[in-house]
Write a protein that binds this DNA or RNA. Structure first.
Length: 1098
RNA sequence: GGGCUUAUAGCUCAGCUGGUUAGAGCGCAUCUCUGAUAAGGAUGAGGUCCGUGGUUCGAGUCCACGUAGGCCCA
């Protein structure tokens, strides 16, 4: 067998499919697992992907990182678990299933049947986990796909039960209340995000209501609200300490307090006049001034500060009802309310303080300057009540109807305008109402049902997080990449409240909490315990997963009191599901020795945003509670994927790119390169243009490879078939080998530090060296007809370098690397010919890194690059030959290096010769500059004097001594060569350059002969261009005719053979009929016409 | 309101503990190669390094204040 030729134009995508088939056929992954089965363990823990939709390109980033570090470790012989995880339970699945069913409310789910619904959720998860699996395989993600974990599995759910049981035994689980946005029709709560999506303009009744002050007769607080139903549950009134309040008396003698500026304030004036957020037909709002005047006029008796009102008590509008008088609140008795208050006891004027954005809670302008606080009916109200230790009243049920105890209101819907009207009528009857108006405003609505949202008190289950210190201690043991992750996690831990673990839904962890009629509850820690305590329904549960509705059938007997209780309806917070994974998947509860082998994980990687209070939090919380240590050692976080312009990808915006499309259009090797190259801290701007950029790098690698294959095939190259010694290696061979070993060393470091972006920067520059220097400068060694030792050395060198390079890259671009490997290693007995992924990561041999040589070649490259820059500055194109490059060096080795490489310089710079000079003066003027960095280190703040003394030192002497290896001239401050920097300025007509141990000078004067040579080459170039434009073949022969005069004519005739050979011309004629192509160009302000004609071959 | 963070070329980003002429890629312009060729290469234009003040021989870098974004918390 020999190495196959490869087409320079490769279809990367097609190759990926071929390699996938190959891996499947060869069972390559299984071979890898068994190869490393006795190796040291490296434990990677996969964060579960939500199996609810097809995988997105943002998932592919994380999965690429997960895969490539696992592949790197496997190349180093590590044994791994390769376990992928699917996140299965939670509201997001329910929402998608509801969409499929075309239903929108919890009620509809219940009508359908929870069992049916939950089974649909399971089916959805199964369907999408399968799809995600196949997409991951397409990405080249090597996992043990038959052994994935699912968070809906029994082992995962029961592991959480065991965890919650421990907490329960430690008295960390309690029942509390919360006030949440609620949709009556859907019968469910909403998150803040969902609220923002569902805001709509609506008209509500704004009511001005009197609250009589107890301490002062006939004096009232004036309240304004657009939710009259909440008045039923009023607890307190808030003022702003700092603003002015007017004491106003109206015609009938009644006295009101209102914010002074509000009297004449034109509410929603702008909205009304610009008809922005205004509803057609709603009249302009009246000022308080107007309202009072309509009631016979008014008088301001006094102006005082809000502070003076704090502490007053008042009579609420519904104090005659039972809920207002129930100690401990209504309907949920909060037994922790030590003050034994009822709502009436809480009717106090308080300071509103600041809201969540730091603004005053109570402001002038809006309303009356008094805010009615109903702790069971508003999120902010609830916080204030909790802070003040007040009770809460929650007047509504799940459908947002008034519950019993609220007189005529009971049973009415609070969002129904008729209900508002009935309440208004009642207030009017009892002379508590001053005024009613229509008030348009933007109000939250349910984004699914379109219903108005209300705020409802719910009872929820919490974990008391008073042991946060334990978690914080663990955070410091983790290697956070990027490092600021640690601070971010601490920040969250410092600020988090107790962990609310309940959610009133259907599909999720069944919280193992059973409640009893005496108000007690019991947490069940395992299936066995449940069976033991079960008194009813076990037979309906047995054989089913521990989910609703099956587990709900089981009633248990309280182990102490013997009371029979039911499970709460709630499901668990899905982060419990993901947080238990280091225990459930590593068999903590049933195979401790296995767990000890793999815990803690060495590495996890996830998308950073959000996870500090989600997955990372739940992992750390659960692990620090159970074991007191972190479940992972290193955490690599990465940012988000955005579209190419930096905008969020959205289905609706049309800028989303689907993984499947991207994979088949750009190819996954390109994608993986793109992900790997990205600095994980920055958002990745994903798109096809960026992919093209990356593809160029891949093509560059492919070109190197296909060049190698083309000639290796021709010459039937077999690796290691001849012995070669160091002496056989050319300078450039040794140079590229040095570079290659350096790259290998750097690559190892980058992988070990989880910084592959740095690796790819190194690779890209190495590829440039390999392609544009090593191969370009060595091409002739491969072309030449003799099959000599030098040719073999060239092959062997390129082979070794290429092999190491693709091995280094194989974790990142597994497909193309595999193809290259399989082809080039066919005849290499040292290599495992089955897969690059079964080979070992290359070893860097330090002794093969010749730093001095690297520096020399680098300076040679610099010489050439600066030569080009000089040409550009002098406006001399490369086509114009120049005379010489003059070199000064005292180092014999360097001198011989330059001499050996002279042809490179001559070729690249289009010069005639490289000459050597012994006179520094010929290169230009020298200057000495202080090396501040060194001087600072040496003299500290005392560097002024030594710095000045540098100007007294002779630069030429310094440089001369330096280049000849002599010591630095003596001076009073004991300065040495490291304390100065030497610069060089060349004479006119030349350009000089100072490299490490040599000086070069390019002569930019153009002699008449050189100029004419340039003229000829220009002409040749013109004709070559014409050949191309005429679409002639490279080997077509032509006849030329042209209006060549004067010097052009001379220069052609003087160099006739050369000229004709270059352009493959068989004859130059005076006149030509029927030319194939003609063109003209300007020379010395004269238009030159040229005609060419193809010679028919015969 | 509190915390964190960012601001550098048209765009996306580097710039280590302060140090010499602030870099890269893309884009743009010009040129170039034509035996790896639907590629490749070179050169160039383009920057008040957000602003103001301070520390220093020296500030993109450190400090203070401000401005504008982002994230988190409340």
């Amino acid at each position: 067998m020999s190495i196959n030729k490869e087409n320079p134009k490769i279809d990367f995508v097609k190759n990926e499919h071929e390699i996938l088939d190959y891996w499947a056929k060869e069972n390559t992954f299984k071979k890898l697992v068994s190869k490393n089965q006795k190796g040291p363990k490296w434990s990677f823990l996969d964060g579960p992907i939500t199996a609810n939709n097809p995988m997105g390109v943002h998932h592919a980033w994380g999965r690429t990182l997960k895969d490539l570090y696992q592949r790197y470790k496997s190349m180093n012989g590590f044994q791994q678990r390769y376990q992928n995880g699917f996140d299965c339970q939670g509201l997001w699945v329910e929402i998608e299933v509801e969409k499929e069913l075309g239903i929108k409310s919890k009620k509809e789910v219940e009508e359908l049947g929870i069992e049916k619904f939950v089974n649909l959720c399971k089916e959805r998860v199964e369907k999408f986990s399968e799809i995600q699996k196949n997409q991951s395989i397409r990405l080249g993600y090597w996992m043990d796909w038959e052994n994935s974990y699912y968070t809906m599995s029994e082992e995962n759910n029961y592991a959480i039960w065991a965890f919650l049981k421990k907490l329960f035994e430690d008295d960390k689980i309690y029942r509390g209340t919360d006030v949440v946005p609620w949709s009556g029709r859907s019968g469910t709560s909403y998150s803040q995000m969902e609220i923002i999506e569902g805001r709509k303009l609506t008209v509500h009744k704004g009511v001005f209501v009197k609250f009589a002050i107890n301490e002062r007769s006939n004096e009232h607080i004036l309240i304004w609200t657009t939710t009259p139903w909440t008045l039923s549950s009023n607890i307190a009134v808030a003022v702003n300490r700092k603003i002015n309040y007017a004491k106003v008396q109206i015609q009938d003698g009644t006295i009101f307090y209102v914010a002074e500026t509000n009297l004449k304030y034109q509410r929603l004036n702008k909205e009304f006049s610009e008809k922005k957020n205004w509803v057609e037909g709603v009249p302009k709002l009246k000022t308080l001034d107007q309202i009072f005047k309509e009631r016979g006029g008014y008088e301001v008796l006094e102006v005082l500060k809000g502070e003076d009102l704090v502490g007053l008590t008042y009579k609420g509008p519904f104090d005659h009802l039972e809920p207002q008088n129930t100690v401990g609140g209504f309907p949920i008795h909060d037994t922790s309310n030590l003050k034994k208050q009822s709502a009436v006891d809480c009717h106090i004027v308080i300071d509103g303080g600041k809201d969540s954005e730091g603004n005053d809670m109570v402001v002038e302008g809006e309303g009356t300057g008094f805010v009615h606080i109903a702790g069971g009916c508003g999120a902010i109200d609830n916080k204030i009540c909790k802070k003040e230790g007040f009770v809460e009243i929650s007047p509504i049920d799940n459908q947002a109807n008034f519950i019993d105890g609220f007189d005529f209101m009971s049973g009415l819907s609070v969002t129904d305008p008729d209900t508002a009207q009935k309440i208004i009528d009642d207030l009017k009857d009892r002379n508590l109402l001053l005024y009613v108006e229509d008030y348009p405003h933007i109000y939250p609505h349910c984004w699914r049902s379109g219903d108005e949202l209300v705020f409802k008190q719910v009872d929820e289950w919490y974990i008391n997080m008073d042991w946060r210190k334990k978690i914080k201690a663990v955070v410091d043991d983790i290697n956070w990449i990027p490092a600021w992750g640690k601070d971010r996690e601490h920040d969250w831990l410092d600020n988090m409240g107790d962990w609310m673990i309940s959610k009133k839904r259907f599909w999720g962890l069944a919280l193992p909490i059973w409640t009893f009629e005496d108000g007690s509850f019991h947490v069940v820690g395992s299936k066995e315990e449940l069976k033991e305590l079960a008194v009813e329904g076990w037979e309906k549960f047995e054989g089913n997963s521990p989910h609703r509705p099956w587990v709900d059938y089981v009633k248990i007997k309280h182990p102490k009191t013997g009371l029979v209780g039911k499970r709460i309806k709630d499901v668990g917070n899905p982060w419990l599901d993901a947080g238990i994974v280091p225990f459930s998947t590593m068999k903590y509860f049933d195979d401790k020795s296995y767990w000890e082998e793999w815990f803690p994980a060495d590495f996890i990687t996830e998308c950073f945003p959000g996870q500090f209070r989600n997955w990372f939090y739940s992992l750390l919380a659960m692990s620090s509670f159970l074991e007191g240590k972190s479940p992972f050692k290193t955490l690599l976080g990465h940012a988000l994927v955005k579209d190419e312009s930096g905008a969020e990808m959205h289905k609706s915006a049309g800028n989303a790119i689907w993984f499947d499309d991207a994979a088949e259009k750009m190819g996954v090797d390109v994608m993986r390169w793109m992900y790997s190259k990205q600095n994980v801290e920055n958002n990745l701007l994903f798109g096809y243009d960026k992919a093209d950029e990356v593809r160029k790098k891949l093509i560059s690698l492919w070109n190197v490879y296909s060049f190698f294959c083309t000639y290796a095939n021709l010459d039937n190259f077999k690796p290691h078939s001849h012995d070669i010694s160091d002496k056989d290696l050319s300078l450039l061979d040794r140079w590229i080998i040095s570079k290659s070993h350096q790259l290998t060393a750097d690559a190892k470091l980058s992988y070990e530090n989880f910084e592959v972006d740095k690796l790819l920067k190194n690779v890209e520059s190495f590829l440039d060296d390999l392609s544009n220097w090593y191969i370009r400068r060595n091409r002739r060694r491969f072309w030449k007809s003799e099959n000599d030792a030098d040719k073999f050395v060239a092959y062997q060198t390129l082979y070794e370098v290429l092999l190491d390079l693709i091995k280094i890259l194989s974790p990142i671009i597994p497909f193309v690397a595999e193809r290259m490997y399989l082809n080039i290693t066919k005849d290499d007995d040292n290599e495992n010919n089955n897969s690059i992924h079964l080979s070992s990561f290359p070893q860097s041999n330090h002794s093969r890194i010749d730093n001095a040589l690297i520096e020399k070649v680098d300076s040679l490259k610099r010489v050439i690059e600066s030569g080009r820059a000089v040409r550009k500055k002098a406006n001399i194109k490369v086509r114009q030959p120049l005379n010489s490059l003059k070199v000064y060096t005292a180092n014999k080795e360097v001198k011989s290096f330059i001499q050996k490489q002279a042809d490179i310089v001559i070729d690249e710079l289009n010069i005639k010769e490289v000459v050597f000079s012994d006179n520094i003066d010929e290169f230009g003027k020298l200057f000495l500059k202080p090396n501040f960095k060194n001087l600072k280190m040496k003299f500290g703040d005392e560097m002024q004097e030594p710095m000045k003394s540098i100007s007294t030192i002779n630069a030429k002497t310094v440089l001369g001594n330096l280049l000849h290896g002599n010591s630095f001239p003596e001076n009073s401050f004991e300065l040495n060569k490291d304390d100065v920097l030497i610069t060089l300025k060349a004479e006119k007509g030349s350009e000089s350059f100072l490299a490490k141990d040599l000086i070069v000078c390019l002569d930019t004067t153009i002699s008449e002969q050189l100029r004419l040579e340039g003229v000829l080459r220009d002409l040749i170039r013109q004709i070559q261009l014409m050949r191309k434009e005429a679409n002639f073949n490279i080997d077509d022969r032509i006849i030329i005719s042209g209006s060549f005069k004067n010097e052009l004519k001379d220069v052609i005739s003087e160099n006739k053979d050369y000229f004709m050979n270059e352009v493959l011309c068989t004859d130059i004629v005076e006149n030509m009929e029927n030319s194939d192509y003609n063109a003209s160009f300007m020379h010395n302000n004269e238009k030159i016409e040229i005609y060419i004609k193809k010679v028919e071959r015969g």
